[in-house]
Amino acid sequence: MTPEQARNVIDEAISQIAPDADLGSLAPDADLRDALELDSLDFLNLVESLSQRTGRRIDEDDYPQLATMASAVKFLTAR
């Protein structure tokens, strides 16, 4: 998966959970939970959505790597 593809997948997943998210202005190193005002159930929905879209298992141990857009892109492109 290329970084562009990863970014698209994340954007899609976020817009499913927070349909009005202004993703264009989201800084790569901004904390997603903070910037998008997500609670723990929203975050779980995000993980679920990313997992479904990529067909990839995302374990709890991986959650810290989904903290920001940049780290999430890196995580999805790493394997």
Binding site: N8, E12, S15, D20, D22, L23, G24, S25, L36
Partner: peptide
Amino acid sequence: TPARPTVPVTARQPVTPLAR
């Protein structure tokens, strides 16, 4: 919302989804 909302709507200041 477009299914792929990667197109920035306009250059504007960031707005949290909740605020929007």
